[in-house]
Amino acid sequence: MKFLGQAKNLISEIDIFWDNISRSALVFRTGMNNYLDGKTKRFQSDLKDIRKLESDTDVMRREIKYKLYSHMLIPESRGDVLGLLETTDNVVDSIKKVLLQFDIERPEIPDSMKDEFKELTQLSVNTVDEMVLASRAFFREISIVNDHINKVHYYEHEADKIEEDLKRKSFTSKAIKTLSWKVQLRYFVERLARVSDEAEAVCDRLSVYVIKRSF
């Protein structure tokens, strides 16, 4: 019966892992809104939160990996599960990096672009949320994974459109006077959109795992 207990622990650890990813997406949105609204103190607190979440996620991923192999669980899909957890780790990593970069460089975002920055952030958060739902479904209800993956593709595509729009504005707007400012804005737009790209990369892998595991 010991091994039933081990399974229970592992299931709850995997669930907590996905909770962490969901929370990271929420912190990302709050952090970006606080930065764009000039609420520096709150932004600093969000940055602290995301650093902790990122490090916790890393520790959890290693723990799950160790347990999967040491208890010889799901032998036929553990490689896929680990691949999924590792690529998901990149999403949190990407969120942490973008917030950290905002803190280091403190780019000035023109008021005319703030709403679109928020929209881009929201779309990236949406992709992460749907990616988490798809991943949770992979463990419990494989038949609905593709529904969530389709939404990830949709949000990522929308994020690409805003990304392109913001980049164009950065280089055409008369309010942004220097080239260094234009380049810096382009860099941050790309950084924000990368979160949705990473989430899509996770889903690309997931769709292959779904085919492999489909009954």
Binding site: A7, L73, F138
Partner: peptide, 8 residues
């Protein structure tokens, strides 16, 4: 059922 449970 969770994948790990199915395995068990």
């Amino acid at each position: 059922i969770h994948m790990i449970r199915i395995d068990q």
